[in-house]
Simulated scan of single mutants.
Amino acid sequence: MRESRTRLPFLVALGAGALLLSACTESTSSAGDAGSPRSLSVSSSAESCDVSAGTAPAGTLTFDVTNDGDEVTEFYLLGDDGLRIVAEVENIGPGLSRQLVVNAPAGDYFTACKPGMSGDGIRAAFTVTPSDEEPTVSADTQALVDAAVKNYSAYVQDQSDQLLAATEEFVKVYRAGADDRARALYPEARVHWERIETVAESFGDLDPKMDAREADLEPGQKWTGWHRIEKDLWPPARYTALTTKQRAAFADDLLANTRTLDERIGKLSFTVDQIANGSRGLLEEVATGKVTGEEEIWSHTDLWDFQANVDGARVGFEGVKPIVEQNDPALATQLTERFAALQKLLDSHRDGDGFVFYDTVATPERKQLSDAVNALSEPLSRLTAAVLG
Protein backbone atom coordinates (compact mmCIF):
# COMPACT_ATOMS: atom_id res chain seq x y z
CA MET A 1 0.00 0.00 0.00
CA ARG A 2 1.63 3.15 -1.12
CA GLU A 3 1.32 6.73 -2.30
CA SER A 4 0.28 9.01 -5.15
CA ARG A 5 -0.18 12.75 -6.49
CA THR A 6 -1.50 16.21 -7.92
CA ARG A 7 -3.46 18.11 -10.58
CA LEU A 8 -3.26 16.81 -14.08
CA PRO A 9 -2.71 19.58 -16.61
CA PHE A 10 -1.94 16.68 -18.90
CA LEU A 11 -2.68 13.05 -18.37
CA VAL A 12 -3.44 10.05 -20.47
CA ALA A 13 -5.48 7.12 -19.21
CA LEU A 14 -5.83 3.81 -20.99
CA GLY A 15 -9.30 2.36 -20.92
CA ALA A 16 -12.69 3.82 -20.17
CA GLY A 17 -13.10 5.24 -16.71
CA ALA A 18 -9.42 4.91 -15.82
CA LEU A 19 -8.45 6.87 -12.77
CA LEU A 20 -6.59 10.14 -13.16
CA LEU A 21 -4.71 9.29 -10.03
CA SER A 22 -3.08 10.81 -7.08
CA ALA A 23 -0.41 12.36 -4.94
CA CYS A 24 0.89 12.39 -1.45
CA THR A 25 2.77 15.47 -0.31
CA GLU A 26 3.88 17.07 2.87
CA SER A 27 1.22 19.49 3.98
CA THR A 28 1.37 22.71 1.95
CA SER A 29 -1.01 25.54 1.19
CA SER A 30 -0.59 25.37 -2.57
CA ALA A 31 -2.25 22.07 -3.42
CA GLY A 32 -5.77 23.05 -2.43
CA ASP A 33 -7.77 26.19 -1.74
CA ALA A 34 -9.33 26.37 1.72
CA GLY A 35 -13.10 26.57 1.47
CA SER A 36 -13.20 24.87 -1.91
CA PRO A 37 -15.54 21.86 -2.21
CA ARG A 38 -12.49 19.98 -3.48
CA SER A 39 -10.49 20.76 -0.32
CA LEU A 40 -11.34 18.37 2.53
CA SER A 41 -9.97 17.96 6.02
CA VAL A 42 -9.55 14.59 7.72
CA SER A 43 -9.10 13.94 11.43
CA SER A 44 -7.87 10.46 12.32
CA SER A 45 -8.01 9.10 15.86
CA ALA A 46 -8.30 5.72 17.52
CA GLU A 47 -12.10 5.75 17.23
CA SER A 48 -12.88 7.96 14.22
CA CYS A 49 -12.00 9.03 10.71
CA ASP A 50 -13.80 12.35 10.32
CA VAL A 51 -13.84 13.68 6.77
CA SER A 52 -15.25 17.19 6.41
CA ALA A 53 -17.59 16.15 3.58
CA GLY A 54 -18.92 12.94 2.12
CA THR A 55 -19.07 14.25 -1.45
CA ALA A 56 -16.90 16.35 -3.74
CA PRO A 57 -16.98 17.30 -7.45
CA ALA A 58 -14.79 15.38 -9.88
CA GLY A 59 -11.34 16.80 -10.43
CA THR A 60 -8.43 17.52 -8.13
CA LEU A 61 -9.35 16.66 -4.53
CA THR A 62 -7.12 17.65 -1.63
CA PHE A 63 -7.37 15.73 1.65
CA ASP A 64 -5.52 17.42 4.52
CA VAL A 65 -5.04 14.52 6.94
CA THR A 66 -4.23 15.20 10.60
CA ASN A 67 -3.44 12.47 13.10
CA ASP A 68 -5.27 13.47 16.29
CA GLY A 69 -4.66 10.07 17.89
CA ASP A 70 -1.82 8.45 19.77
CA GLU A 71 -0.76 5.88 17.14
CA VAL A 72 0.75 6.18 13.67
CA THR A 73 -2.07 6.20 11.13
CA GLU A 74 -2.77 5.90 7.42
CA PHE A 75 -5.47 7.38 5.18
CA TYR A 76 -6.89 5.75 2.05
CA LEU A 77 -9.27 6.53 -0.76
CA LEU A 78 -10.61 3.15 -1.86
CA GLY A 79 -12.58 2.10 -4.93
CA ASP A 80 -16.25 1.17 -4.81
CA ASP A 81 -15.38 -2.45 -3.97
CA GLY A 82 -13.61 -1.36 -0.78
CA LEU A 83 -10.48 -3.24 -1.88
CA ARG A 84 -8.83 -1.30 -4.69
CA ILE A 85 -6.50 1.38 -3.37
CA VAL A 86 -7.06 4.56 -5.34
CA ALA A 87 -4.64 6.64 -3.28
CA GLU A 88 -3.07 6.55 0.14
CA VAL A 89 -0.85 8.37 2.58
CA GLU A 90 1.01 6.30 5.17
CA ASN A 91 3.08 6.68 8.32
CA ILE A 92 1.41 9.82 9.73
CA GLY A 93 2.71 10.17 13.27
CA PRO A 94 0.65 11.49 16.20
CA GLY A 95 0.11 15.24 15.92
CA LEU A 96 1.37 15.37 12.34
CA SER A 97 -0.42 16.29 9.11
CA ARG A 98 0.11 15.18 5.55
CA GLN A 99 -1.68 15.96 2.34
CA LEU A 100 -3.18 13.62 -0.24
CA VAL A 101 -4.08 15.10 -3.62
CA VAL A 102 -6.15 13.01 -6.00
CA ASN A 103 -7.50 13.78 -9.45
CA ALA A 104 -10.55 11.52 -9.32
CA PRO A 105 -13.38 10.94 -11.80
CA ALA A 106 -17.02 10.76 -10.78
CA GLY A 107 -17.94 7.57 -8.94
CA ASP A 108 -18.42 5.84 -5.62
CA TYR A 109 -15.53 5.45 -3.20
CA PHE A 110 -14.71 4.79 0.43
CA THR A 111 -12.48 6.80 2.74
CA ALA A 112 -10.59 4.91 5.43
CA CYS A 113 -8.23 5.68 8.30
CA LYS A 114 -6.06 2.94 9.83
CA PRO A 115 -4.97 3.91 13.33
CA GLY A 116 -2.06 1.71 14.28
CA MET A 117 -1.75 0.84 10.56
CA SER A 118 -3.69 -2.37 11.07
CA GLY A 119 -7.10 -3.86 10.42
CA ASP A 120 -9.63 -2.86 7.77
CA GLY A 121 -9.68 0.73 8.93
CA ILE A 122 -12.49 3.09 9.92
CA ARG A 123 -14.46 3.51 6.71
CA ALA A 124 -17.17 5.71 5.25
CA ALA A 125 -18.80 6.00 1.84
CA PHE A 126 -17.54 8.87 -0.31
CA THR A 127 -19.04 10.11 -3.58
CA VAL A 128 -17.39 12.07 -6.37
CA THR A 129 -20.00 13.85 -8.45
CA PRO A 130 -19.70 14.80 -12.15
CA SER A 131 -18.10 18.15 -13.00
CA ASP A 132 -16.73 19.94 -16.03
CA GLU A 133 -13.09 19.96 -14.92
CA GLU A 134 -11.06 18.32 -17.67
CA PRO A 135 -7.31 17.96 -18.08
CA THR A 136 -5.69 19.46 -21.19
CA VAL A 137 -2.49 18.57 -22.97
CA SER A 138 -0.33 19.95 -25.79
CA ALA A 139 0.49 17.68 -28.72
CA ASP A 140 4.21 17.59 -27.85
CA THR A 141 3.56 16.70 -24.22
CA GLN A 142 0.96 14.11 -25.22
CA ALA A 143 3.58 12.30 -27.28
CA LEU A 144 5.88 12.09 -24.23
CA VAL A 145 2.99 10.94 -22.05
CA ASP A 146 1.96 8.26 -24.55
CA ALA A 147 5.51 6.92 -24.75
CA ALA A 148 5.91 6.84 -20.96
CA VAL A 149 2.63 5.00 -20.45
CA LYS A 150 3.27 2.51 -23.24
CA ASN A 151 6.77 1.66 -22.03
CA TYR A 152 5.81 1.38 -18.37
CA SER A 153 2.81 -0.81 -19.13
CA ALA A 154 5.08 -3.15 -21.11
CA TYR A 155 7.62 -3.21 -18.26
CA VAL A 156 5.06 -4.09 -15.61
CA GLN A 157 3.53 -6.82 -17.75
CA ASP A 158 6.97 -8.29 -18.51
CA GLN A 159 7.90 -8.37 -14.82
CA SER A 160 4.55 -9.96 -13.96
CA ASP A 161 5.07 -12.64 -16.61
CA GLN A 162 8.58 -13.31 -15.31
CA LEU A 163 7.27 -13.47 -11.75
CA LEU A 164 4.77 -16.13 -12.77
CA ALA A 165 7.38 -18.22 -14.58
CA ALA A 166 9.86 -17.94 -11.70
CA THR A 167 7.18 -18.78 -9.12
CA GLU A 168 6.16 -21.87 -11.06
CA GLU A 169 9.76 -23.12 -10.93
CA PHE A 170 10.18 -22.14 -7.28
CA VAL A 171 7.07 -23.93 -6.02
CA LYS A 172 7.96 -26.99 -8.10
CA VAL A 173 11.28 -27.49 -6.35
CA TYR A 174 9.90 -26.47 -2.96
CA ARG A 175 7.12 -29.05 -3.21
CA ALA A 176 9.70 -31.65 -4.18
CA GLY A 177 11.73 -30.94 -1.04
CA ALA A 178 14.76 -29.65 -2.98
CA ASP A 179 15.43 -27.02 -0.33
CA ASP A 180 18.88 -25.89 -1.46
CA ARG A 181 17.53 -25.16 -4.93
CA ALA A 182 14.42 -23.51 -3.50
CA ARG A 183 16.56 -21.26 -1.29
CA ALA A 184 18.57 -20.20 -4.34
CA LEU A 185 15.44 -19.47 -6.37
CA TYR A 186 13.59 -17.61 -3.61
CA PRO A 187 15.33 -14.19 -3.93
CA GLU A 188 15.57 -14.50 -7.71
CA ALA A 189 11.84 -14.99 -8.07
CA ARG A 190 10.98 -12.25 -5.61
CA VAL A 191 12.99 -9.72 -7.61
CA HIS A 192 10.13 -9.58 -10.12
CA TRP A 193 7.57 -9.00 -7.35
CA GLU A 194 9.66 -6.26 -5.76
CA ARG A 195 10.17 -4.39 -9.05
CA ILE A 196 6.41 -3.92 -9.37
CA GLU A 197 5.52 -4.07 -5.68
CA THR A 198 3.46 -0.89 -5.62
CA VAL A 199 1.35 -2.20 -8.51
CA ALA A 200 0.87 -5.58 -6.82
CA GLU A 201 -0.05 -3.88 -3.55
CA SER A 202 -2.86 -1.98 -5.26
CA PHE A 203 -4.83 -5.24 -5.17
CA GLY A 204 -5.79 -5.11 -1.52
CA ASP A 205 -7.08 -8.67 -1.41
CA LEU A 206 -4.01 -10.31 -2.98
CA ASP A 207 -1.14 -8.50 -1.30
CA PRO A 208 -1.75 -9.84 2.25
CA LYS A 209 -2.15 -13.36 0.88
CA MET A 210 1.13 -13.17 -1.00
CA ASP A 211 3.51 -10.91 0.88
CA ALA A 212 2.41 -10.65 4.53
CA ARG A 213 5.17 -10.85 7.11
CA GLU A 214 4.54 -12.76 10.31
CA ALA A 215 5.02 -9.62 12.42
CA ASP A 216 2.27 -7.84 10.48
CA LEU A 217 -0.45 -10.48 10.84
CA GLU A 218 -3.81 -9.44 12.26
CA PRO A 219 -5.41 -11.60 14.97
CA GLY A 220 -6.95 -14.63 13.30
CA GLN A 221 -5.36 -13.90 9.92
CA LYS A 222 -4.19 -16.98 8.05
CA TRP A 223 -0.57 -16.66 7.09
CA THR A 224 0.21 -17.61 3.50
CA GLY A 225 2.54 -16.49 0.75
CA TRP A 226 6.22 -15.92 0.22
CA HIS A 227 7.24 -15.25 3.80
CA ARG A 228 5.39 -18.29 5.15
CA ILE A 229 7.49 -20.43 2.85
CA GLU A 230 10.60 -18.38 3.64
CA LYS A 231 10.34 -19.32 7.30
CA ASP A 232 10.08 -22.99 6.38
CA LEU A 233 13.17 -22.80 4.19
CA TRP A 234 15.23 -20.89 6.76
CA PRO A 235 13.77 -22.33 9.98
CA PRO A 236 14.52 -20.61 13.28
CA ALA A 237 15.25 -22.53 16.45
CA ARG A 238 12.44 -24.73 17.76
CA TYR A 239 10.54 -24.37 14.50
CA THR A 240 8.27 -27.26 13.46
CA ALA A 241 8.80 -27.96 9.76
CA LEU A 242 5.82 -28.12 7.45
CA THR A 243 4.68 -31.53 6.31
CA THR A 244 4.78 -32.51 2.65
CA LYS A 245 1.03 -31.91 2.45
CA GLN A 246 1.31 -28.49 4.07
CA ARG A 247 4.14 -27.54 1.74
CA ALA A 248 2.03 -28.46 -1.25
CA ALA A 249 -0.90 -26.41 0.04
CA PHE A 250 1.16 -23.25 0.61
CA ALA A 251 2.96 -23.68 -2.71
CA ASP A 252 -0.27 -24.15 -4.63
CA ASP A 253 -1.84 -21.16 -2.91
CA LEU A 254 1.09 -18.90 -3.80
CA LEU A 255 1.06 -20.02 -7.40
CA ALA A 256 -2.71 -19.56 -7.74
CA ASN A 257 -2.50 -16.03 -6.35
CA THR A 258 0.41 -15.23 -8.66
CA ARG A 259 -1.64 -16.35 -11.64
CA THR A 260 -4.51 -14.16 -10.49
CA LEU A 261 -2.14 -11.23 -10.10
CA ASP A 262 -0.78 -11.73 -13.61
CA GLU A 263 -4.30 -11.82 -15.04
CA ARG A 264 -5.27 -8.63 -13.26
CA ILE A 265 -2.12 -6.79 -14.27
CA GLY A 266 -2.93 -7.66 -17.87
CA LYS A 267 -6.11 -5.58 -17.54
CA LEU A 268 -4.50 -2.56 -15.89
CA SER A 269 -4.02 0.88 -17.37
CA PHE A 270 -1.61 3.52 -16.12
CA THR A 271 -1.28 7.29 -16.05
CA VAL A 272 1.91 9.30 -15.82
CA ASP A 273 1.26 10.35 -12.24
CA GLN A 274 0.77 6.71 -11.28
CA ILE A 275 4.16 5.96 -12.81
CA ALA A 276 5.84 8.79 -10.91
CA ASN A 277 4.07 7.92 -7.67
CA GLY A 278 4.99 4.27 -8.11
CA SER A 279 8.64 5.30 -8.35
CA ARG A 280 8.37 7.17 -5.07
CA GLY A 281 6.43 4.36 -3.44
CA LEU A 282 9.05 1.77 -4.33
CA LEU A 283 11.77 3.81 -2.70
CA GLU A 284 9.62 4.10 0.42
CA GLU A 285 9.45 0.30 0.41
CA VAL A 286 13.23 0.33 0.64
CA ALA A 287 13.22 2.83 3.50
CA THR A 288 10.55 1.09 5.59
CA GLY A 289 11.48 -2.57 5.11
CA LYS A 290 14.66 -3.32 3.24
CA VAL A 291 17.13 -0.99 4.96
CA THR A 292 15.89 -2.14 8.36
CA GLY A 293 16.20 -5.85 7.52
CA GLU A 294 12.57 -6.49 8.47
CA GLU A 295 11.44 -7.77 5.08
CA GLU A 296 13.42 -11.01 4.84
CA ILE A 297 13.78 -11.75 8.53
CA TRP A 298 14.84 -15.42 8.08
CA SER A 299 16.51 -15.54 4.66
CA HIS A 300 18.34 -12.18 4.98
CA THR A 301 17.97 -11.70 1.21
CA ASP A 302 16.94 -8.07 1.73
CA LEU A 303 19.53 -6.68 -0.67
CA TRP A 304 17.95 -8.55 -3.60
CA ASP A 305 14.66 -6.87 -2.68
CA PHE A 306 16.43 -3.54 -2.16
CA GLN A 307 17.93 -3.68 -5.64
CA ALA A 308 14.64 -4.70 -7.21
CA ASN A 309 12.75 -1.82 -5.58
CA VAL A 310 15.43 0.57 -6.83
CA ASP A 311 15.20 -1.00 -10.30
CA GLY A 312 11.47 -0.38 -10.44
CA ALA A 313 11.79 3.16 -9.08
CA ARG A 314 14.49 3.98 -11.62
CA VAL A 315 12.49 2.55 -14.53
CA GLY A 316 9.50 4.63 -13.48
CA PHE A 317 11.62 7.77 -13.29
CA GLU A 318 13.38 7.15 -16.57
CA GLY A 319 10.04 6.66 -18.29
CA VAL A 320 8.83 10.13 -17.31
CA LYS A 321 12.30 11.73 -17.39
CA PRO A 322 11.72 13.47 -20.76
CA ILE A 323 8.69 15.20 -19.24
CA VAL A 324 10.67 16.18 -16.13
CA GLU A 325 13.52 17.50 -18.28
CA GLN A 326 10.98 19.70 -20.01
CA ASN A 327 9.36 20.96 -16.78
CA ASP A 328 12.19 20.86 -14.21
CA PRO A 329 15.59 20.05 -15.77
CA ALA A 330 17.48 20.59 -12.50
CA LEU A 331 15.36 17.95 -10.77
CA ALA A 332 15.94 15.51 -13.64
CA THR A 333 19.69 15.95 -13.26
CA GLN A 334 19.60 15.61 -9.48
CA LEU A 335 17.55 12.42 -9.61
CA THR A 336 19.83 10.89 -12.24
CA GLU A 337 22.87 11.59 -10.07
CA ARG A 338 21.33 10.26 -6.86
CA PHE A 339 20.04 7.08 -8.47
CA ALA A 340 23.61 6.51 -9.71
CA ALA A 341 25.09 7.14 -6.25
CA LEU A 342 22.70 4.69 -4.60
CA GLN A 343 23.40 2.08 -7.26
CA LYS A 344 27.16 2.43 -6.73
CA LEU A 345 26.67 1.77 -3.03
CA LEU A 346 24.47 -1.26 -3.69
CA ASP A 347 27.04 -2.65 -6.11
CA SER A 348 29.62 -2.63 -3.32
CA HIS A 349 27.58 -5.36 -1.59
CA ARG A 350 27.37 -7.70 -4.57
CA ASP A 351 28.47 -11.31 -4.37
CA GLY A 352 28.60 -12.95 -7.77
CA ASP A 353 25.22 -12.63 -9.46
CA GLY A 354 23.54 -11.77 -6.18
CA PHE A 355 24.34 -10.00 -2.95
CA VAL A 356 25.76 -10.71 0.47
CA PHE A 357 23.20 -11.69 3.10
CA TYR A 358 21.94 -8.69 5.01
CA ASP A 359 22.82 -10.04 8.44
CA THR A 360 26.49 -9.71 7.38
CA VAL A 361 26.13 -5.99 6.60
CA ALA A 362 27.49 -3.98 9.51
CA THR A 363 25.59 -1.11 11.13
CA PRO A 364 27.79 1.64 9.60
CA GLU A 365 27.25 0.18 6.13
CA ARG A 366 23.51 -0.02 6.72
CA LYS A 367 23.57 3.64 7.69
CA GLN A 368 25.36 4.49 4.45
CA LEU A 369 22.58 2.74 2.53
CA SER A 370 19.93 4.51 4.58
CA ASP A 371 21.55 7.89 4.00
CA ALA A 372 21.71 7.27 0.24
CA VAL A 373 18.03 6.30 0.21
CA ASN A 374 17.11 9.43 2.14
CA ALA A 375 19.17 11.58 -0.22
CA LEU A 376 17.21 10.18 -3.15
CA SER A 377 13.85 10.29 -1.37
CA GLU A 378 13.72 14.06 -1.03
CA PRO A 379 13.98 14.95 -4.74
CA LEU A 380 11.92 11.89 -5.67
CA SER A 381 9.10 13.26 -3.53
CA ARG A 382 8.93 16.13 -6.04
CA LEU A 383 8.82 13.90 -9.12
CA THR A 384 5.07 13.78 -9.62
CA ALA A 385 4.64 17.53 -9.25
CA ALA A 386 7.32 17.98 -11.92
CA VAL A 387 5.64 15.46 -14.19
CA LEU A 388 2.29 17.19 -13.85
CA GLY A 389 3.82 20.59 -14.48
Rank of each mutant, 00 (worst) to 15 (best):
Thr240Arg: 03
Glu214Val: 02
Ser202Phe: 09
Asp232Asn: 06
Leu185Phe: 02
Ala165Lys: 15
Trp193Asp: 07
Gly177Lys: 04
Ala166Asp: 15
Arg195Val: 07
Trp193Ser: 00
Pro236Gly: 03
Asp252His: 01
Pro219Asp: 09
Pro235Arg: 02
Gly225Met: 01
Ala256Met: 07
Thr198Met: 03
Glu197His: 15
Arg183His: 02
Thr243Ser: 14
Gln246Asn: 11
Ala237Glu: 12
Ala241Thr: 14
Thr167Arg: 08
Gly220Phe: 07
Trp234His: 14
Met210Phe: 02
Gln246Ala: 15
Pro236Met: 08
Arg247Gly: 01
Arg175Ala: 11
Lys209Asn: 14
Leu206Ile: 14
Ala256Glu: 09
Ala251Tyr: 01
Glu218Thr: 15
Ala237Phe: 06
Thr258Ala: 05
Asp253Cys: 03
Leu185Met: 06
Ala200Glu: 08
Thr224Asp: 13
Phe250Met: 01
Gln246Met: 13
Ala256Gly: 03
Leu254Asn: 04
Thr258Trp: 05
Pro236Gln: 06
Arg195Met: 04
Pro235Asp: 09
Glu197Phe: 01
Tyr174Gly: 02
Arg213Cys: 12
Glu214Asn: 04
Ile196Ala: 04
Trp223His: 14
Gly225Asn: 03
Trp223Asp: 09
Arg213Met: 08
Val191Asp: 00
Tyr174Asn: 09
Pro235Asn: 06
Asp216Val: 08
Arg181Phe: 03
Arg183Gln: 04
His227Asp: 05
Val191Trp: 05
Thr258Cys: 06
Glu169Thr: 07
Phe250Asn: 09
Ala241Gly: 11
Leu206Asn: 10
Leu185Asp: 04
Glu201Ile: 08
Thr240Gln: 06
Gly225Tyr: 00
Ala182Arg: 07
Arg238Ile: 12
Pro236Ile: 09
Lys209Ile: 09
Ala200His: 05
His227Arg: 05
Pro219Asn: 06
Arg259Thr: 13
Thr240Pro: 06
Pro236Trp: 07
Phe170Leu: 14
His227Glu: 09
Pro235Gln: 06
Asp252Ala: 00
Phe170Ile: 00
Val199Gly: 00
Pro236Ser: 07
Pro187Glu: 02
Leu242Ile: 08
Trp234Ile: 10
Tyr186Ser: 04
Asp232Glu: 10
Val173Pro: 02
Ala176Phe: 03
Glu197Tyr: 03
Glu201Trp: 02
Asp207Gly: 05
Ala182Ile: 01
Ala178Asn: 12
Ala249Asn: 13
Phe170Asn: 03
Arg190Asn: 07
Met210Glu: 06
Asp253Glu: 15
Asp207Leu: 11
Leu254Thr: 02
Arg238Ala: 15
Glu230Met: 01
Phe170Ala: 01
Glu201Thr: 11
Lys231Arg: 14
Asp179Trp: 01
Leu254Asp: 03
His227Pro: 12
Pro219Phe: 01
Glu230Gln: 04
Ala176Asn: 06
Asp179Val: 07
